[in-house]
Write a protein that binds this DNA or RNA. Sequence first.
DNA 1: TTATACCCTACTATTTTTGTCAACATTCCA
DNA 2: TGGAATGTTGACAAAAATAGTAGGGTATAA
Lengths: 156, 156
Amino acid sequence: MVGIKRGGFMRLSTRGRYGLKAMYQLAIHYGEGPIPLKSVADRQNLSENYLEQLVSVLRKEGLLNSVRGAQGGYMLAKPPENITVGDILRILEGDIAPADCVIDGGYECENEKSCVTKTVWIKIRDSIDEVIDSITLQDMLDKRQRNEKNFIDWED
Amino acid sequence: MVGIKRGGFMRLSTRGRYGLKAMYQLAIHYGEGPIPLKSVADRQNLSENYLEQLVSVLRKEGLLNSVRGAQGGYMLAKPPENITVGDILRILEGDIAPADCVIDGGYECENEKSCVTKTVWIKIRDSIDEVIDSITLQDMLDKRQRNEKNFIDWED
DNA sequence: TTATACCCTACTATTTTTGTCAACATTCCA
DNA sequence: TGGAATGTTGACAAAAATAGTAGGGTATAA
Ligand code: FES
Ligand code: FES
């Protein structure tokens, strides 16, 4: 391949992007009982089947509860202030890893003990960690409240 | 696909990883005239042909100069203190973009004006920007000097 | 008992990444 | 002057990751 990569970098996959949006949507309706996934998928124009795969993992990891059958659906297993963006993204995407050598058990180059490049990856990783671990779903809801003063009735 | 993604996220491709290593290697030999790519590739056990593609882009973007023919090679076009990690990564990987909507001209969801999720992507992007723009090749060389006191004669 | 909705697994299509290869152009040096 | 070293370019291909599709099963409310 020739030329500059088109896509940009440090991109999340749809797993993390759809997943966070879905969790945010469920946070909006926290306390209202189970919300069917179909309504979330419709609201965001996503494949319900695909979203189901993501949500299923979030449930197994304890971030969501589910109720089967008619009138069933999903709901947050914890209050929005106890769920961070980092919790969600790590479950759906794995650990943050600009390069393999910053993962446990990952490959390290021969000079790992004094590898300067590795220190760069570590700084990037730590800075992302700090951001995603500091934002909770409740923070996002608060932000929404402030926005609502200007833009009414959206994203319910 | 089922289960948690294996690879981890926010990963750089080999383009960025090989590219930064190569630039660092050339920084080590800054001022010594052109360095053949073969020596860089050998040192890092990379395909010379593949590395050539990356280096070629860095040259076109003005970060490297080249000299053709025998005794030729590549060298930094600017002093190491004037080249940042961000310069290199953006050329090889494109702009930082956790999601499309933080790129110019990228897709935005219907609520882009007040999209809360977008503010999360922006915070992630900004935090990465800050890290990679603050590290120069000279910083990496300095770090190397300090390491050399403990681990002699490596990565030349 | 029927419609709704979660649950699970397998399969497929598409895109991106990671190279390989071959032919060519320029320069040094013996 | 000729050949070895080195950069230049573009086409092609293999491999991996991503993004979905499809469909059958199970539990529950009404
Ligand atoms: S140990 Fe990761 S780049 Fe050296
Ligand atoms: S505008 Fe990007 S997620 Fe809404």
